[in-house]
Design a protein around this nucleic acid. Structure first.
Lengths: 203, 203
DNA sequence: GTCTATAGCCAGATAGAC
DNA sequence: GTCTATCTGGCTATAGAC
């Protein structure tokens, strides 16, 4: 019984820390706010995670581990580029709608501390573009795709899928739309973006 | 003579503050670091700008004022959509290469404080999508463009141009490239992105 | 494991001399 | 206008009782 309580508390803390860190970032987050959200005492945070830095790293790794497998589907799957673009776009946008703060959190913290990604790169399962590049070359040779560099296509796919969520306050302001309309636009993008990409690259 | 010194000091501070705030963000920035960079005393910062918050706002408004006119060229210019896409993409990527921290700074701080954009919206010259939308509809009717919503096209243009810079640590890691190769890729994008977009939307 | 109380530090802001 | 010295508050982290 004591043991289940451990796990509960530790998890409560991690969940609370996620919410606070993902919105406020490492520098803006306060241990007090995390403690309040987890409905425990501030001292408990240190009991379980030693320091703010370690708690942050736990949250960050957790967040990245959610994101990476999504990318691997488009990089390492065996279906055609067109199929992968359509599947990925639909799945990824659905995924981000469920975790709206995740991409900007990852990006913001990596900009703050770019060396951090070196540690992540060592881990297996880290997204790698090599296979995707080969496939693009192959499909171009077969006449399925117009000439394009694999890197550029991959950057384009990521940009179109992720950017609107990262820059949502700007998008809403420029397009003069409220949250509801924004959500509608993002839902439409599940197919719109795939069509946009496929239109551009298919012969 | 005393007056020229004022202007110099105030400018030195603003330049130093730009560098620090744009890299570290509001929460991560330290007044001491800004003072050191400006080669003046910490007390001077408060003499000229009263508080960290006011100094930050000066930097932020300055940064946004640089960005907005760039966007207005694609929104309000009278040339065709294709011409605007080609011009904008080339100019905007050149612009960001010169100010690499600007987009992520704006985006990060707006995510931290989304209400802030309401103040910006009131100012004249704030980018507005209305004219662009009408033009898209018109060119679709004329058979120049394939059907697409103006909002989605605008989001796509922004995404493709800005995202790689905002997420540069991720891009470098996934594509396994160093800073030099990254810069080369971004240079290529000045024309690559325009072609990608035009290919997709032209009939 | 969980709490209260507090140590210790650091950053923003100000007072006051020059 | 510019400096040094200092105040003040807030935050991370820990000590120590239960």
């Amino acid at each position: 019984m004591a043991k289940t309580k451990d796990i509960n508390t530790e998890n409560q803390i991690l969940e609370a820390a996620k919410k606070v860190f993902q919105i406020k970032g490492m520098d803006g987050a306060r241990m007090q706010e995390i403690a309040d959200k987890a409905k425990i005492n501030k001292a408990m945070l240190h009991y379980y995670y030693r320091s703010k830095q370690l708690l942050f790293e736990a949250v960050f790794k957790n967040a990245f581990a959610l994101l990476a497998p999504q990318l691997n589907t488009i990089l390492n799957d065996d279906s055609s580029i067109e199929e992968k673009v359509r599947n990925f776009t639909s799945n990824y946008i659905s995924f981000i709608i469920k975790h709206p703060y995740l991409p900007s959190f990852i990006i913001q913290e990596l900009n703050r501390n770019p060396e951090f990604i070196l540690k992540l790169k060592e881990q297996k399962g880290f997204p790698n573009i090599a296979k995707f590049k080969k496939q693009v070359i192959l499909e171009i040779e077969k006449g399925i795709l117009k000439p394009i560099k694999g890197e550029q296509l991959f950057i384009n796919i990521l940009s179109l899928n992720i950017f609107p969520f990262v820059a949502s306050p700007l998008i809403k302001a420029f397009a003069n739309i409220d949250n509801k309309e924004f959500k509608q636009l993002m839902n439409d993008r599940k197919t719109e973006v795939a069509n946009f990409i496929v239109n551009s690259i298919k012969t």
